[in-house]
């Protein structure tokens, strides 16, 4: 039985004509082949003139932005106001621990001895630990601290061989960052 519908899809004679550009000459062919190479060479040769930019890490270090968030520091009072110089600013309030999204701060507070105070408040942090292996360097602890006792510094050299060595204790955080990267010595 033949299909009663009209066949709309019958192909007619199908001729495609291709338009071609004229054949290039020798010079133009060369240019087309090496144009990008030459552009690259121009940049290379141009940089030669500027001198080296490689930073010899770890002997040399890239400067960080002022608001870079690196390893934490705990601070002490420096100025002599009401005899507080040298006392820890941290009162062990645990607010940083509450703010920390990675839950990596542990504070155990204790009663300050008024005769021989550790901090300037009624309490002080007997234990203050940050697990830097878990820290995401968000800086919330710094925001939360009512005494500006903790800030994030510029030190980013934090790798170690042992995870537990990345739990920084209060003494470590009060100290200047230790020199942790092996440097090439004179003559090495």
């Amino acid at each position: 039985m033949s299909d009663p519908r009209p066949n709309r899809y019958q192909l007619g004679p199908d001729v495609v004509e291709v338009q071609r550009a004229p054949e290039p000459g020798v010079g133009r062919s060369f240019y087309r082949a090496f144009r990008e190479t030459l552009r690259g060479l121009k940049t290379t040769l141009g940089r030669f003139a500027e001198g080296t930019v490689t930073i010899q890490y770890p002997e040399e270090k890239t400067p960080v932005y002022p608001r870079f968030r690196g390893r934490h520091k705990l601070h002490k009072f420096e100025a002599e106001i009401d005899g507080t110089a040298g006392l820890e600013k941290c009162v062990g309030c645990s607010l940083c621990a509450a703010a920390c999204p990675a839950d990596c701060i542990r504070v155990v507070a204790a009663d300050n001895d008024p005769e021989n105070p550790t901090s300037a408040g009624e309490r002080y942090a007997a234990v203050y630990e940050i697990n830097l292996a878990r820290c995401i360097f968000c800086g919330y602890c710094e925001l939360a601290c009512p005494f500006d006792a903790i800030t994030l510094g510029h030190d980013y050299e934090l790798s170690d061989y042992n995870r537990s060595d990345l739990i920084f204790t209060k003494d470590m955080l009060l100290d200047e960052p230790a020199e942790r990267t092996p440097l090439r010595r004179e003559g090495e």
Partner: peptide, 9 residues
């Protein structure tokens, strides 16, 4: 209980 913990601890 003085200074021994915070509610979130």
């Amino acid at each position: 209980y003085r200074f021994r913990a915070r509610p979130w601890d």
